[in-house]
Design a protein around this nucleic acid. Structure first.
Lengths: 152, 152
DNA sequence: TTAGGTGCAAAAGTTTTGCGGGCTG
DNA sequence: CAGCCCGCAAAACTTTTGCACCTAA
């Protein structure tokens, strides 16, 4: 795989040893078109004839999170999901039917945060934002009717 | 407590029996100035000489969530938190030091969602958004230095 | 060679479920 | 008094940890 050398480089830069397991985790996350839970990763690697223990997955996710090679992105059934960190700042548009994720580079919250922070006296340092809906394919396939947006 | 009659009314409207336990959960959430985990609620009720079992807390949170008396709002150590549903649509500004929450009624995402949905062909139905930072008190007390915002 | 990584098994922590008894309406 | 609800205990899961062995550098 061509990505592997890039991942090796990243691991080296962050002072982590290059192991089959770490490359495997990164490769799975790289390939996935949705964020994955620890279990998802474990399952996929084992299906690919790539035995790895679940504790190794957890340990490495923690480590990679600390080194900011990956990010926590969204939740599925109250379990957190992980994804490759692709850019400094992005948001996600997530299909509620097939869980596909589209990355949004623009962010309408920069200006909003500054104004709000000034007004409330808060020092705002970060934000989370995800948009949910149905992707074109799922709208077509599942005949999802148009309905008014709600938010949480 | 004055809120109790309001809560009783809500429970009745949603076809739930009025029990001490349910009123207790709603009262705790009403009083709290941060969203709470199931454990938080259990602990607070028991401290108030109000014995309740943890499974009852979980069962009723699920039920109240389904009936939309409460909402899931944010995560703390990867555990989900619950809060009284106060309005159709709001967002939160959360202090990273003391976990205090300020509710934001305005939303910069309405227009953004419409435009984005049109561009991506998505039917966007909802969104999540939370802002994080340090409240005036914590900035003062803990002398938190100014630093560049980051986002996730 | 050796520090750090891995697998296994056990522990810790969270959430769900079955059941007998109790309370609300 | 009937049906729903509660507490308790056990089960099902998710995540963390200790330890002996292994491997990348």
């Amino acid at each position: 795989m061509e990505e592997t050398s890039h991942h090796s480089e990243q691991l080296r830069l962050h002072g982590q040893k290059i192991t089959k397991q770490r490359l495997g985790i990164l490769a799975v996350l790289e390939t996935a078109d949705t964020p994955l839970t620890a279990q998802d990763i474990h399952l996929r690697l084992n299906l690919e004839q790539f035995p790895i223990s679940l504790s190794t997955v957890y340990r490495n996710l923690d480590r990679m999170l600390a080194e900011e090679l990956i990010v926590k992105q969204g939740f599925y059934n109250d379990k957190c999901q992980y994804a490759i960190k692709r850019s400094e700042h992005f948001h996600s548009l997530i299909c509620l039917a097939c869980r596909k994720v589209v990355t949004i580079e623009e962010c309408p919250l920069e200006q909003f945060s500054r104004d709000l922070g000034r007004r409330e006296g808060f020092q705002i340092t970060e934000h989370h934002m995800e948009l949910y809906g149905y992707c074109p394919e799922c709208v077509r396939k599942e005949g999802i009717a148009s309905h008014a947006p709600k938010a949480t």
